[in-house]
Design a protein around this nucleic acid. Structure first.
Length: 158
DNA sequence: GCCAACGTTGGC
DNA sequence: GCCAACGTTGGC
């Protein structure tokens, strides 16, 4: 039995890591997430799930592309790295605290789908990222919302 | 640059 | 285990 791929949205400040870098790298471990709610969503991700790539802290904030989960339930290596910004002294290889996934690049959208446009398309309950004050960097997206986003990005013909 | 929202920390 | 203080995120 197979399950339908689920949809997610992951934020990144393009000054840290952008969709263009993702396109260049093709595959990347989504490391450095240090929020338990976000981590729990990362733990739920399965191979084949799709994640919208959202550029935050830029003008305009927007969904800019799509990634696919290539490897699930990875131990985030940066938690053990003292030199890393995201080093966690409470994490040990025996008892890691932070898991994530490896994403592969899927698509860069021809046109970014801006937060303003997303607010026109969705109520806050329909798409978490349009909710005011939302700081979560990894969140689920319903199949309905994902379909609407993809239709918007690809045009009525697609 | 401001500040609302909210997660985390630590004193008690 | 409460909650004030603090830090961070991220839109505006």
């Amino acid at each position: 039995m197979t399950t339908e791929p689920r949809y997610w949205l992951t934020k990144s400040e393009p000054s840290d890591y952008s969709i263009d870098e993702m396109q260049r790298d093709r595959v990347e471990i989504w490391d450095g997430v240090r929020n338990y709610q976000a981590r729990n969503f990362l733990r739920e991700m399965r191979c084949g799930d799709l994640a919208f790539f959202y550029h935050s802290n830029v003008k305009p904030p927007a969904i800019v592309g799509l990634m696919r989960v290539a490897e699930e339930n990875i131990v985030d290596p940066t938690q053990f790295d003292k030199a890393d910004k995201h080093y966690d002294p409470k994490a040990t290889p025996e008892k890691p605290r932070w898991q994530t996934v490896r994403f592969e690049f899927a698509e860069k959208f021809a046109q970014p789908l801006t937060l303003d446009r997303l607010k026109e398309m969705f109520a806050p309950e329909e798409l978490l990222v349009v909710k005011r004050g939302n700081r979560l960097s990894v969140m689920p997206v319903s199949a309905e919302a994902a379909a609407k986003i993809l239709q918007e990005v690809r045009g009525e013909a697609g």
